[in-house]
Amino acid sequence: MSTVYGLLYLKEIKYDDIAWTMLNAGRTIKVIDTGISIHSKDQGDIDRVKELLTGDGIDVAITMDFAPAVSDACESLDIKYVSWIYDMPQQELYEKQVGNDCNYIFSFDKIQIEQIKEAGGKQVFYQPLATNVYRNSGLVINPEDEARFSCDVSFVGSLYNDDSYGDVLGKASDETQSEIEAIVNSSFGIWDGKNRINGKLSDTAISELWKIYGGNDTDSFSMDKDTYLGARLFARYISFLERSCILESLSDYDVRLHTNDTSISIPGVKVGGRLSYDEELPRMYYLSKINLNISLHSILSGVPLRVFDIMGVGGFMLTNYQPEIEELFTIGKDIEVFHDIDELHDKVSFYLANEKARLQIALNGYKLVSEKYSYDRAIESILAKIG
């Protein structure tokens, strides 16, 4: 009998590209909407997943990102659980379930792999993210798309504009505020491959911020407090500053921002709402002369999914530097990078004025990710590793 794979949807993540690829390869895959949260560890949710997996005769369960309740269900049923991580850090990777024997965890970030192992993960592998060549090849652009999406520069993503940082800062002591400001100032607008957030706070500041922020103190949670604060507080606030500043500073061009919060206002920037992943986003990426990626500083070395999504439809990609970019691509041939905001401005100006060079890089990038970083290749690599 052939192996039956189950692609599990979670409340927060419903992702079709794996199903497309496995069906095209002739594998038996069933899409199962669990109705549970990725954060859940509740016994009721574990039992629900067990019932769903048993009812569909699943041999291997698959999710994007790691779900503790799914892991416990698979452990109980003695079936393999594959999770492909595209967030960093992903908080659920620091729960005790990461040590379950059923887990096969694949991460896009080499530094994260070591962190998962330190948290108890046993079978952890490196797997860059990918693009769906089947969906990409079916992209059709019509005049309405051109009128709606064509622009000089676009960024699609969150601005992290909630005020949790301000709330915490307002309650912190003067000494802790000084430490926080030093971290923000040393990290803002610099992408040189160094971790500029973690390991900078004193023990006193960590203890104070943990109490203010209401951190998790359960025995099952193994993420250290400095890493948690860096990811949940500093990285998001710095990204808010960077993304807002960069977009406003480019406002002499036709700049578009698509984000969940349409109440955001940035002078000179056209703000639109969320775009559908399968239909609207590919058109936005293809019709933007320059697509920006501005990563969270909590992603330490890996290349985010947005980069593959953009390059996979032939969009020109200008991204902040990440160490693994040089391992996956040739900078200046397949992709362009910036290390600081001044370099970003220089490259936006250059590539808007040099269409031939811009289009050649976009074409090279499209060919490369389609050949080397397709879901076909990625899934075959993952299945080979799980045996």
Rank of each mutant, 00 (worst) to 15 (best):
N100M: 07
N198P: 08
D278G: 07
S76N: 13
S164E: 11
R274F: 15
S150C: 07
K356G: 07
D42T: 12
S239Q: 13
I46V: 15
S107Y: 11
K356S: 14
D56F: 14
N364K: 06
S154V: 06
S150I: 02
D163L: 12
S173T: 15
L300M: 13
D59L: 00
L247W: 00
F329G: 09
E51S: 13
Q90S: 11
K117P: 06
L77Q: 06
L53D: 03
S76F: 07
S40Q: 03
I58V: 15
R196P: 06
I111D: 12
S202R: 06
L241V: 06
S374D: 04
T319N: 05
D224T: 05
M88N: 13
E51D: 12
L247H: 02
D16S: 14
S154Y: 04
S370N: 14
E118M: 09
I32Q: 04
S207M: 11
D340T: 04
H345Y: 09
D309E: 15
K80H: 08
G302C: 01
D261H: 05
P89V: 14
H339A: 06
N260L: 12
K270F: 08
M311V: 05
D59E: 01
E280V: 00
C102V: 14
E327Y: 08
E248S: 13
E380C: 06
K80M: 05
G57T: 00
P304W: 03
G166A: 12
G315D: 03
M88V: 14
D346A: 13
S381V: 09
F108N: 11
G312S: 01
R232Y: 15
H345I: 01
K211A: 14
F329A: 10
L233Y: 05
K372Y: 07
S370A: 11
D342R: 12
R196L: 07
S220C: 10
N161H: 10
V60I: 15
G157M: 01
